[in-house]
Design a protein around this nucleic acid. Structure first.
Length: 491
RNA sequence: GGUCGGAUGGCCGAGCGGCUAGGCUCAGCUCUGCAAAAGCUGCUACACCGGUUCGAAUCCGGUUCCGACCUCCA
């Protein structure tokens, strides 16, 4: 029996996963900043961690999954003149910042449902934890790691470096060379040291979203919310913290420094980082202009897309690559996944109609059990979804062969097959049948049509039978004549 | 410039010292009234140059390309 191993960014190694307080597991994932439509790259991270969450649950851990919503404090720039992204958008649209927040939070939740993401157990917001953030800043100052300048508070990285490493997670060293370059660039900075970062930002009179604090009206620094909300709900030390690669530095590095500075403890046992999404080999990003939105991907309404792809196809496509590798989007790759996904789901769907034709255990039964074990083994190996999917394809090939009577199974083997496929396809990978499988009325209408076509075929009335098939095909309903009768599906 | 990661068959994408992942495409066959679906068979790749080893896509050194981060980003 294997056990779960996770690649820990901090140690740069795969480590056996040992929860701090089994059977409880704390999982924190950096959520979206809701100043715009959720980005596809965001969704890839959330999908990756959705599988992490599902699998931990599957291993019978009691997981508390916290994923935040950043609704204030994320500045367009870390310098002195940075502007809050949400506030900026609100002003441009002449509406309340909280309207922006509500609008894009709703949008994000909608897309999450389409991707079949399980809701986190707690979805805290930065604005809901201002008090806690102020308290943390106080502790940081009290410990000598923060200083105030003109109503803003900065984290004193130089002081911190006297006692602790900074840059451990991202493998970065703060060197003098860089200090000089930067010091020159940022002439009139309030910071004492180039690497210092803001933990409280003084607000101007015009700022709409601001809160009173011991240092005057202002907003908390972006990195602070994650430090506060993760430890508030998961404890001062918790198991897993996830996010995108690009958050390693400075965001996650700052989180560690803040927690150590405030409470003397590094909060996270296992740091997990998902890799980027690329388009034609380049990182998909808003600033590069090569990104499309989830809804554009589903509808196909984007110049770079040949057609639309269903949410489940996209989810499957994402899971065919390991979360730590870059994933390149292209029409060809998406089309390949679409077909593969349909094949997998068709096999899975035909499973209940299979018959056990052996009284005792067969070789196929054993093979099924072995493939079930390998699914688990692959998931245990740092959530290797591509390999798990490969085993699932082997399983679906067995399903087809049983269906074609080239393999035989016992009832026990069949039950096992059903249980394994359900577990990994639905529960662990979170793949679901697309909702367009029709309804009762359509089912009975199709039953009637197929019956009529059957009698036409028995009378060798090919004109009628082919007409039925072709016309249905034209509206997207495929007719498949099998040995055991005719079935249909909507494409 | 610094730090880190990557180069795998027609395409996508696993692999982390021996046991030819998987998906898609393509070709042939079986089944079928025809078609589709399904099944079977075929297609043996690891950027380049050295080295270590009985054995390397996998380890070491070098070369060339590509990407990410270092400034907001998932």
């Amino acid at each position: 029996m294997s056990s779960l191993h996770i690649y820990n960014t901090l140690s740069r190694k795969k480590e056996e996963f040992k929860p701090i307080n089994p059977p409880f597991v704390g999982l924190y994932v950096c959520g979206p900043t809701v100043y715009d439509e959720v980005h596809l790259g965001n969704m890839r991270q959330f999908t990756s961690f959705d599988v992490v969450y599902r699998y931990l649950n599957n291993l019978d851990y009691q997981v508390r999954y916290v994923r935040n919503i950043t609704d204030v404090g994320h500045l367009t720039d870390d310098g002195d003149d940075g502007e809050d992204k949400i506030e900026k958008k609100a002003k441009a649209n002449k509406i309340e910042p909280m309207e922006i927040v509500q609008k894009y939070t709703n949008g994000f939740h909608h897309i999450s449902k389409l991707f079949n993401l399980i809701d986190p157990n707690i979805e805290p917001t930065a604005t809901g934890h201002i008090v806690e953030q102020i308290e943390m800043i106080k502790r940081i100052i009290a410990n000598g790691y923060g200083y105030e300048v003109n109503g803003s508070v900065y984290f004193d990285v130089k002081k911190y470096l006297e006692k602790y490493p900074y840059g451990e997670l991202s493998g970065r060293k703060i060197d003098e060379q860089l200090e000089q370059t930067r010091a020159n660039l940022e002439g009139g900075s309030e910071k004492k040291y180039f690497a210092d970062f803001g933990i409280w930002k003084a607000a101007s009179k015009e700022t709409i979203m601001k809160w009173p604090s011991p240092w005057g009206d202002g907003v908390p620094g972006w990195h602070l919310e994650c430090s506060v909300m993760s430890t508030k709900y998961l404890g001062q030390e918790f198991d897993i913290h996830g996010g995108g690669m690009d958050l390693k530095f400075p965001h996650h590095e700052c989180e560690i420094a803040q927690s150590v500075g405030a409470d003397g403890r590094s909060p996270v046992r296992y740091w997990m980082h998902g890799n980027m999404l690329t388009v034609n080999g380049e990182k998909m990003s808003k600033s590069k202009g090569n990104s499309f939105l989830p809804l554009e991907l589903f509808s196909g309404k984007h110049p770079m897309l040949k057609k639309g792809f269903s949410p489940m196809t996209v989810r499957f496509f994402m899971l065919q690559t390991h979360y730590s590798s870059t994933l390149d989007f292209s029409n060809e790759a998406l089309e390949a996944s679409e077909k593969g996904f349909q094949r997998l789901m068709n096999a899975y769907k035909s499973l209940p109609s299979l018959l056990a034709k052996s009284k005792q255990e067969t070789d196929t039964d054993k093979e099924i059990a072995a493939l079930g074990d390998s699914c688990k083994m692959h998931m245990d190996d740092d959530f290797n979804t591509p390999k798990t999917i490969a085993s699932l394809f082997d399983l679906s090939s067995i399903v087809n062969k049983i269906n074609d009577n080239t393999l035989t199974v016992s009832q026990a083997g069949l039950n096992n097959l059903q249980a394994i496929m359900k577990n990994f396809i639905e529960d662990v990978l979170g793949l679901a049948f697309e909702a367009k499988q029709g309804n009762e009325a359509l089912d009975s209408a199709m039953g009637l049509i197929i019956e009529m076509r059957k009698s036409a075929r028995e009378n060798k009335d090919w004109t009628t039978s082919d007409k039925i098939r072709d016309e249905l095909g034209a509206v997207g309903i495929a007719i498949k004549d099998g040995k055991e009768g005719t079935s249909w599906s909507i494409s």
